[in-house]
Simulated scan of single mutants.
Amino acid sequence: MSLLNVSNIGIRYGRLTAVRNVSFTMAEGEVLFITGPNGAGKSSLLRAIAGVTAPSGGRIDFADHDITGKVPEAIARLGLSMVPEGRDVFGSLSIEENLMVGTGMHAGENGWRARAMAELEAVYATFPILKERRHSQAGLLSGGQQQMLVIGRALMTYPRLIAIDEPSLGLAPNITDQVYERLIALQKERRLTLLIVEQSSTRAMMVGGRMMLMRGGEIVLDGDARALGKSEAIEAAYFGYGEQA
């Protein structure tokens, strides 16, 4: 049974159509990369799933709930957390304060404080540098450390699915490798479902899992990331020439 079901989603900005009738499903525990050139509609699709952008048509179901057009807070309560492009940390707050923001939606629930403290220690175990600098201002962290922080903040919401927009943006390749190593380890440990937007298909091929390639607001390829990486179809689909598989 699918955890996420996207059916005929369209997204418009005025006269501009960003996403055209996109449909796909994700099983629990799956890793899915959405790749494609600039302007393909990748980030718009992710924002619609997370409730940041209202779709112009179609339906989105998560964990047997219709979340189409719902606000991000309501969607996050169901277990879908988004890590936005550009990391978006609260720079003047400490690292620990940034992490605790993620628990706010559960404040007042029975046992929420004990659970939050346990989750905080789990995040620190995954990203030790955050514990070392937990009282430092988040704005002073490097780009890679900020990426770890926002992933940790997403974990503090107790997610079943994390949607991440361009996690490698602005990071050196070796730092990107570290971020992905932690992400995949978390996915295996917690059976998290990961939906990741990356412009380059190369990272998807390196990590593995499933890959969808978008161009012109539509899905033009969908399959095993490593298998697609070995085929000629991906270049044709990415640049829009030749036959597409």
Rank of each mutant, 00 (worst) to 15 (best):
G111N: 06
G111I: 01
W112D: 11
R113M: 00
A114W: 04
A114T: 11
A116E: 09
A116K: 02
M117V: 01
M117L: 11
A118E: 07
E119Y: 05
L120W: 01
L120I: 06
L120C: 07
L120G: 08
F127D: 12
F127E: 11
P128G: 06
P128Y: 02
P128K: 03
I129H: 08
I129C: 08
K131M: 11
E132W: 02
E132V: 05
E132M: 08
R133A: 01
R133H: 00
R133T: 00
R134F: 09
R134V: 08
R134H: 00
H135K: 04
Q137L: 11
A138T: 11
A138G: 15
L140M: 08
L141C: 11
L141D: 10
L141V: 05
S142V: 01
S142K: 04
S142R: 02
G143W: 03
G144A: 04
G144F: 08
Q145R: 11
Q145L: 00
Q146K: 15
M148T: 05
L149F: 01
V150R: 12
V150K: 13
I151W: 01
I151C: 07
I151E: 09
R153V: 08
A154C: 11
T157Y: 04
T157M: 12
P159W: 00
P159H: 00
R160L: 15
L161P: 14
L161V: 07
I162T: 07
I164Y: 12
I164C: 12
D165V: 06
E166N: 00
P167M: 09
S168G: 06
L169Y: 10
L169G: 11
G170W: 02
L171N: 13
A172L: 09
A172P: 07
I175E: 15
I175T: 07
T176A: 14
T176C: 00
T176L: 03
D177Y: 11
Y180D: 04
Y180E: 03
Y180G: 00
Y180F: 15
Y180P: 06
E181C: 00
R182K: 12
R182C: 07
L183G: 03
L183C: 08
I184E: 05
I184S: 01
L186Q: 07
Q187C: 08
K188M: 06
E189I: 13
R190E: 00
R191D: 10
L192V: 06
T193P: 13
T193Q: 10
L194P: 02
L194T: 10
L195W: 05
L195T: 13
L195S: 10
I196Y: 01
I196W: 07
I196M: 00
I196C: 03
V197Q: 05
E198H: 15
S200T: 14
S200V: 01
S200K: 10
S201Y: 11
S201I: 12
T202C: 06
T202F: 10
A204K: 04
M205G: 09
M206A: 14
V207Y: 05
G208H: 07
G209V: 01
R210C: 09
L213M: 12
L213Q: 05
L213C: 13
M214T: 14
M214A: 14
M214P: 10
R215M: 06
R215D: 09
